[in-house]
Simulated scan of single mutants.
Amino acid sequence: MGRLLLAEGPDGPWEGLHEELSRTGSVVLYATMPAWQPRGGTESDLRRRLGRDWRRYETITQPRIRERFVASRLFLRQTAAAALRTAPDLVDLAYQPGGRPYVRGCDQIDVSLSHTEEMMVVGLTRRGRIGVDVERADRRLAHTGSERQACTPYEKERLDAGGEEARNDTMVRLWTLKEAYSKALGQGLRFRFTEFGFALDGASSRLVRPDGSPVPGGEWQFVTRPAGEGYVVSAAVCDTGFGELSDLSVGTTLDAGMLDALMGAPGAGRPAPPKSLPGDL
C-alpha cells in the first residue's frame, strides 16, 4: 500500500486509484461526508443509487445517521465502480452475516468501509483481504480502561516504556490497527483485541503474539497514515496469492452468467459493459 488518496466527490479525480491499484494492488481513500451527500434528485434517484441498501436506509429514522449512511454507501459504491471501470448503479453491494461489505460477483476484489464524525475511509484490494479503520487522532484512549480491554501484556510494556507524552498517540494507532485487522478477517469486535498484538517500529507495524513473539508468515501488511484534519487511518491487507490481476473491468472480473444478471441482458448478444464512468478522468 502506498499513499492515502483524497476522494473529493463522485466526479473524482480517480486517476490515483488506478495508479495505486496498478502499482501496489491496493488503495485506501478518504473523504468528507458533506462532499458525498446527494445533490437534488428524486426519491427514485436515491433508491436507484443505493441499490439493495435502500431497504436499510428506510429503517433509519435519525436524520444525521441517514446522511452518514447515504454518503458512506455512495462513496463505497463509487470507489468500487471506478476500480471496475463501470457505472455505480451496476455495483451490487451485499453484506456478510457480520456486516462486512462485498461486491457480489466480483470476488477478485475486496472492500472495507469505516467512518467517524465527518470522515469516511474506503479500502479496496485485488490481492486478497483488506480492512480499514479511522479515528480522531486526539481520541482519548490512554488511562480510560482501553489498555486493559485492548492491549496485550507486550503492548502494555511498550506503552509504559514509551513515556506519557506518546502514550495516547500510540494507543490510537494500536486501536485502529486492531480494528482494521479484525475487519479484514471478517470478525469486527468479536475478535478479542487482547489475543493479538502489534510491534511498532517507527512507521512499520508487525503482527505479534500477546507475549510479543513474531507471528510467522509475511502475507499481512499494515500501515497507519494521517488523514484530513485531525484523523488517523490504519489499513490491513492480506495477500492471499490472487496474483497480478491488471484488468479489473467488469467484463473481466464477472463470469458471464453474473454479468447477464447485472446487465439485465440474458443470453448471447448482450451489449458490452461500459469501460469507464461518465466523466471519468
Rank of each mutant, 00 (worst) to 15 (best):
L5K: 02
E8T: 11
E8W: 04
D11W: 08
G12T: 05
P13N: 07
E15G: 11
G16V: 05
E20S: 09
E20P: 03
S26R: 01
A31H: 00
A31E: 01
T32W: 07
S44V: 09
L46A: 08
R52I: 09
D53V: 04
R55T: 12
R56E: 15
Y57R: 06
I60E: 01
I60H: 02
T61Q: 14
A71C: 09
A71P: 01
A71N: 03
S72C: 09
S72H: 02
S72K: 03
L74I: 05
A80E: 03
A82S: 10
R85L: 12
R85D: 08
P88W: 00
V91P: 00
D92H: 14
D110P: 03
L113T: 02
E118R: 09
V132Q: 00
V134H: 01
L141A: 01
T152M: 05
E157K: 13
E164G: 14
A166L: 11
D169Y: 02
W175E: 00
T176F: 04
K178M: 06
A180E: 01
S182N: 05
G186V: 04
R190D: 12
T194P: 04
E195Y: 11
A199D: 13
S204G: 10
S205T: 10
R206S: 15
R209S: 09
P210D: 08
G212H: 02
S213R: 13
P216A: 12
E219P: 04
V223H: 06
A227Y: 00
G228V: 07
V233W: 01
V233P: 00
C238M: 13
T240K: 06
G241M: 10
F242T: 10
F242R: 14
S249Y: 07
L259D: 03
L262D: 03
P266Q: 07
A272D: 11
A272Q: 13
P273I: 04
P274M: 08
G279T: 06
D280M: 15
L281N: 12
